[in-house]
């Protein structure tokens, strides 16, 4: 089935008649299922531009829909609804409402880069997945995903100290996503880990959680990076308001 027909054969778009005779021929039953006619008019003409304005989405226009990305995709193997090729198609067509049906799973890309490896057009589908997940959040279609929370907690720590101390990142991530830190499998893991560890090692690990390892003379680098992040954020905000701008302009013309 060509991918663009996927939306046409959803149950709500199909029509089957129990008793239907056309020109004397009985066409009752499932073998004569009809697809309802559909008119699509709610295209978001700037969708592709918005996605390409976010980091990772820059090369989306290069896609020629070969499907190598989905074919290679790690997550698609686990969940067939996870379909990078289809989402790239929808974005390029501006079919925002169709894209929004999958809004809760797009962030689940594991960044294994099998798609990027397979892509013959250098679309960098992994980047497109990140850009799309960020777009959904920035536009208010989804709350921040656990993955975005993790990225933010991590980046905050790098900006602050230059280095990552894992248990601190973990604790902050669980706090921010309101999850219990001590899940049964984690308790089991810690038990196994402590088992057989020398006291010196445990002390060292304990100390690291109290005194974070840091890169010295880091404040200037940190300030420069924060300034850069803010600047980029501002630029992206502007790029994402494009839709509203076009809408306003259209209304002005009509008026």
């Amino acid at each position: 089935m060509p991918i663009h027909e996927k939306s046409l054969i959803r149950p709500e778009n199909l029509e089957t008649h129990d008793n239907l005779v056309i020109d004397g021929v009985d066409v009752s039953g499932h073998w004569s299922t009809f697809i309802k006619t559909r008119v699509v008019s709610d295209y978001n003409e700037t969708l592709q531009e918005e996605i390409s304005a976010l980091p990772g989405g820059e090369e989306i226009h290069r896609c020629w829909q070969c499907g190598s990305c989905t074919n290679a995709c790690t997550v698609n193997e686990v969940n067939p609804d996870f379909n990078p090729r289809y989402w790239i198609y929808l974005i390029r067509m501006g079919m925002e409402s169709e894209l929004l049906r999958d809004k809760d799973i797009i962030w689940q890309c594991v960044s294994c880069n099998k798609c990027t490896y397979a892509c013959p057009r250098d679309v960098f589908p992994e980047g497109v997945m990140k850009a799309t997940a960020h777009w959904l959040e920035r536009k208010g279609h989804t709350p921040k995903s656990p993955s975005t929370h993790f990225d933010e907690v991590f980046t905050e720590q790098v900006l602050k100290t230059g280095k990552i101390e894992e248990s601190r990142t973990m604790r902050r991530f669980f706090a921010r996503t309101k999850q219990k830190l001590l899940q049964p499998w984690m308790i089991e893991m810690v038990k196994q880990m402590i088992n057989g560890l020398p006291v010196g090692m445990l002390t060292r690990m304990g100390l690291a959680t109290l005194i974070a390892p840091r890169t010295s003379d880091w404040s200037k680098a940190s300030a420069a990076m924060q300034e850069y992040i803010d600047e980029q954020h501002e630029k992206q905000e502007q790029a994402l308001s494009l839709a509203e701008l076009v809408e306003t302009a259209k209304n002005d013309v009509a008026a």
Partner: peptide, 21 residues
């Protein structure tokens, strides 16, 4: 006095920031 390479997390926030790190 090394620093974090940026890992995947900083790359997700901004790839060029990871390049800098």
């Amino acid at each position: 006095n090394w620093n974090c390479c940026g890992a995947m997390e900083v790359k997700n926030v901004d790839p060029k920031l990871q390049t800098y790190l």
